[in-house]
Write a protein that binds this DNA or RNA. Structure first.
Lengths: 236, 236
DNA sequence: TGCCTTCGTATTGTCAACAATATGCAATGT
DNA sequence: ACATTGCATATTGTTGACAATACGAAGGCA
């Protein structure tokens, strides 16, 4: 764990974040978030204030502030006088998150369909082609980042920052759900078919079709994850 | 401003909140949120740590923690070494929030259409009737809480807590937008027509129709607010 | 007059100490 | 053997103090 530097302005990797946010709590927050999402702590694990503070080289104050922000983002659970724990995402929670994500992503597609440029369509088509290649090769390490880039391009392409923030908030909570196990390979083919349907609707500037395609894609993803989870563990 | 009691367990109004959350920061947070949403501070106004801490009868620590949570919820803006300010919601922001709200509310309607009970339909019909009475009487004080109850019933009726939280988060940010001025009366008639369309689709268990009705209702509300804002102030 | 520098004050950022609560272990009693 | 009580320890909750930064007024200079 990288010890946060004692205020020396430029310090390697995230100098930009530092310049923008400066305050230690922001730094500590993103650091703890990284730790949580990396899956280093299992779901429900306790986050000790002093331990974390020592690891990051700060006092407990900023750590406690970071906890509050992470709690508001739904990444940790706080029990008074007991402590802070990595949020447990049950199957039931995951379903709820996926349904909201379906609505948000569908909305993104719908909004994008009304304003998408030819360049953006081309960009998505390039990603589509690359994903198909990776899919045929069963190359999950190539496929995964492309898949993320595809969804990110659509969500940020709307130009709606609130939508993007909401979407990424849901994504991070889902990361928490599948933090353990779940290679969730497979489903390349169907996933690519769904991607093509989305781009087709976007290219046709068809808001309704785009929403439906986006919604259906996330719902299909939900089904795939839940099926995969069914096989690996018997979580509540 | 009610001074927060010094730990005496039961203290009038929000004893339940206290029992559940206990920690001062939670209390302070909801208190500051109330202050912000009440519109007592104008948009962009500075929130002084020590002043607030003294008003609430606590030290700066819990106040700072509350700030972090409120920042994560998008209610305040934090500038390093400068302080915390009531979040400014521009017209552009409001449009973005409304678009997301349309998607979320539409999604709520869609999900609810798949699981709504006859009792729930009746409940909504009762609210519908009451709103029509209030609308015909131009009784905004009666109409407003009914309107909120109608939307809340739909959103919570889905049983999806994540969706509800997301929705209410957007609502509170919108409250920030129209905190000043904006009586936004009028539009009763059209609003009621839209409400009827929503309930009709729900009663018909028609997910697509319900989504569209919900989406259209929020979009219409957006148009009404923006038009009203056009007349009152020239915000950015 | 208008602009810049300088200094005092107010405010934020961080920390370490103190108080309150919970946890785990040992001793006691049934 | 098992449950219960009491104590020692660890952890959280809160506070006040100190350091660093920003703000604003007064004064000097062109």
């Amino acid at each position: 764990m990288d010890r946060i530097a004692k205020r020396q302005p430029m310090e390697g990797s995230e100098a930009l974040d530092l310049l923008k946010s400066s305050s230690l709590s922001q730094l500590v927050q993103s650091e703890i978030q990284k730790i949580i999402l990396s899956g280093r702590y299992s779901a429900g694990a306790k986050l000790n204030e002093k331990t974390l503070a020592d690891q990051l080289g700060v006092s407990r104050g900023p750590v406690r502030e970071a906890f509050q922000a992470l709690h508001a983002r739904g990444l940790v659970e706080m029990i008074p006088n007991r402590g802070v724990f990595v949020q447990r995402i049950t199957r039931h929670d995951a379903v709820a998150i996926y349904d909201v994500r379906a609505g948000i992503f569908g909305t993104a597609c719908r909004l994008l369909a009304e304003r998408i440029t030819a360049d953006m369509v081309n960009e998505l088509n390039v990603l589509l082609a690359q994903m198909e290649v990776a899919g045929q090769r069963r190359d999950i390490d190539a496929y995964f980042p492309l898949n993320i880039e595809f969804h990110t391009a659509i969500v940020t392409g709307t130009g709606n920052q609130v939508l993007a923030d909401t979407y990424f908030g849901l994504i991070s909570r889902l990361q928490l759900f599948r933090a353990r196990g779940l290679v969730h390979g497979g489903g390349f083919e169907s996933s690519n078919i769904e991607h093509r349907a989305i781009v087709a609707a976007l290219d046709a500037r068809d808001p309704h079709g785009a929403f439906e395609a986006g919604w259906a894609h996330v719902q299909a993803g939900k089904a795939r994850i839940l099926a995969s989870d069914e096989n690996t563990a018997g979580s509540t």
